[in-house]
Amino acid sequence: MKTSDCDILIVPGHTNSGEDHWQSRWERQLSTAWRVEQENWDAPNKDAWVERIVRDVERAKKPVVLVGHSLGVLAIAHAAPQLAGGKVRGAFLVSVPDVERPDFIPAIDRAFAPIPREPFHFPSILIASRTDPHCDYAKAEDIAYAWGSAIVDAGDAGHLNTESGHGPWPEGLMRFAGFLKRL
């Protein structure tokens, strides 16, 4: 599949993805990409976030590929059971947060717990770092296996966001292109 063959839905996490974040750059760079806009990026509401994803998938004109980062990954996981029917062709997931961890940000992201464990009905890939402060690699790997996602070890890469030096993230874009090719 080529980018022109699908609608690419960018699903950011808590506080949205800033202008220099790789998701924002991809949205500007890929002509069929658009952001799933949430009403409140600073106080995430799981049900509202899931509803927006489902609505945007329904209004897409082409097959959909989801691109989630951080809490957006969990929003996609919670939405997955409502995305049956074949319109979603794949999900490219980056830096899942472990919202089940006792020391995680209380009241904000914990609303997304427990982490869904049902397999997705579409192909997916989860990219995880060995040094992500929001999720241990072993937990990310366990989540990927539960979802039926391929797991990619990003090495010592932090949370794969602007703060960890992944603004442009050309390696991620190449990995995304390879993922699309297999869909």
Rank of each mutant, 00 (worst) to 15 (best):
Q23N: 08
Q23C: 05
Q23P: 04
Q23F: 07
Q23M: 10
Q23E: 09
S24R: 04
S24T: 13
R25K: 15
R25M: 13
R25V: 15
W26T: 01
E27P: 08
E27W: 05
E27L: 06
R28I: 00
R28L: 11
R28T: 09
Q29C: 09
Q29V: 00
L30A: 03
L30C: 12
S31K: 11
S31E: 14
S31F: 00
T32P: 02
T32E: 11
T32I: 05
A33E: 04
A33R: 08
W34Q: 13
R35Q: 05
R35E: 03
V36I: 14
V36S: 10
E37N: 13
Q38G: 03
N40Q: 13
D42I: 00
D42C: 00
D42N: 13
P44R: 01
P44A: 01
N45R: 14
N45Y: 00
N45D: 15
K46S: 02
K46C: 14
D47L: 09
D47A: 14
D47W: 01
A48W: 01
A48Q: 14
A48Y: 01
A48E: 15
W49D: 04
V50C: 11
V50P: 11
V50W: 11
E51S: 15
R52K: 15
R52Q: 15
I53C: 08
I53H: 08
R55W: 09
R55I: 00
V57H: 07
V57P: 07
R59E: 13
R59I: 13
K61F: 00
K61P: 00
K61M: 06
P63R: 11
P63D: 12
V64C: 01
V64F: 06
V65C: 10
V65K: 05
L66F: 06
L66G: 06
L66Y: 06
H69P: 05
H69C: 02
H69F: 04
H69D: 01
S70V: 02
L71I: 05
G72I: 03
G72A: 08
V73K: 07
V73D: 02
V73A: 06
V73T: 12
L74E: 00
L74T: 14
L74S: 02
I76Q: 08
I76L: 10
I76V: 14
A77G: 12
A77H: 10
A77C: 11
A77S: 14
H78D: 09
A79C: 08
A80Y: 06
A80M: 08
P81H: 11
L83A: 05
L83G: 06
L83R: 06
L83I: 08
L83P: 07
A84I: 09
A84V: 12
A84K: 14
G85K: 12
G85M: 12
G86N: 04
K87S: 03
K87N: 03
K87C: 03
K87H: 07
V88S: 10
V88T: 11
V88F: 11
R89M: 05
R89Q: 15
R89G: 13
G90P: 04
G90D: 07
G90L: 09
G90N: 06
A91P: 07
A91S: 09
A91M: 03
F92G: 02
F92R: 04
F92E: 05
F92C: 08
L93G: 06
V96N: 04
V96M: 03
